[in-house]
């Protein structure tokens, strides 16, 4: 089975596996958060819905889930030392993903600052920050996965 997966190019380095896990966890955590908050609203205006507990559980749960999944998928891996180490290509792909992801963190911070100055409700400020965190994680990890499956862009 592993030979078939390897031939198909689906055997991954630790860093690529980590990117897939973080991408899946980020999408699942944000989807769960949205479902809970929309459920809490129950027809009322969204800004009146309870969100703080769901947001904290979503952030904490996604960090814990990513750590546990990385431990589970990393344990018992077979292959030589070359399948476990992190090399220069991993670092270059990591930098590309972080570079793309960080831009959304900055966008979220600037948006939240402007919204606070304009007197927006805390619900919207917290949610725009969380949305940009989620976008940062999703797009950063999508960029990493695409670079692993395809090639690194050369500017």
């Amino acid at each position: 089975m592993s030979k078939i997966l390897y031939a198909a190019g689906w055997v991954m380095t630790l860093r690529e596996r980590r990117a897939w896990i973080r991408l899946a966890v980020a999408v699942a955590a944000y989807a769960a958060y949205l479902a809970v908050v929309l459920g809490n609203a129950g027809g009322r205006p969204l800004a009146q819905a309870g969100y703080a507990a769901a947001l904290l559980w979503s952030v904490g749960g996604s960090v814990a889930a990513a750590v546990v999944l990385e431990m589970i998928t990393g344990a018992g891996r077979r292959g030589g030392a070359s399948s476990r180490l992190t090399d220069v290509r991993d670092r270059e792909i990591g930098r590309l993903g972080d570079y793309i992801g960080q831009s959304f963190v900055v966008i979220g911070a600037v948006a939240a600052m402007l919204m606070a100055m304009a007197g927006w409700e805390r619900f919207w400020i917290a949610n725009v920050i969380y949305l940009c965190f989620a976008a940062s994680a999703v797009l950063g990890n999508v960029a990493k996965v695409l670079a692993y499956r395809g090639s690194l862009p050369q500017w």
Partner: peptide
């Protein structure tokens, strides 16, 4: 590819790429 990867200290996936 794995042997070459071990010789140069990179992952097998890097050698493939």
């Amino acid at each position: 590819q794995a042997e070459l990867a071990d010789l140069i200290g990179v992952t097998r996936q890097t050698v493939i790429a």
